[in-house]
Amino acid sequence: MSLEVNGKQYEVDEEGYLANLNDWDTDVANKMAEIDGAPLEENHWEVINFLREYYEEYQIAPAVRVLTKQIGKKLGKDKGNSKYLYELFPYGPAKQACKYAGLPKPTGCV
């Protein structure tokens, strides 16, 4: 399967996750969100950028629980809770945000 962004083809799996981490750029993320019908805003980007940094450091996408806790520590308690994160990413914060961030599905994602 593939995703077309700016005339270029990107390989994705059957759930829409990018096959190659290095293919990612902001246009790819915006395109994925556009297809899902909810364009990315600044609040989304905070989480997406956090996930990319976390992956860069630890080589994993964090579980939802870890994501929630770490977002709370970094961006404040008003953002570090499931309600806020599920409003931003209704398909599941780790699952959906990881897809936009070009990361594999989180380990332990159920």
């Binding site: 450091e57 630890y58 080589q59 994993i60 964090p62 870890v66 806790k69 770490q70």
Partner: peptide, 13 residues
């Protein structure tokens, strides 16, 4: 894949 840096995430878990 070098997974040695993942051990550092155990504290977060």
């Amino acid at each position: 894949k070098n997974f040695s840096s993942t051990y550092s995430a155990l504290g977060d878990y």
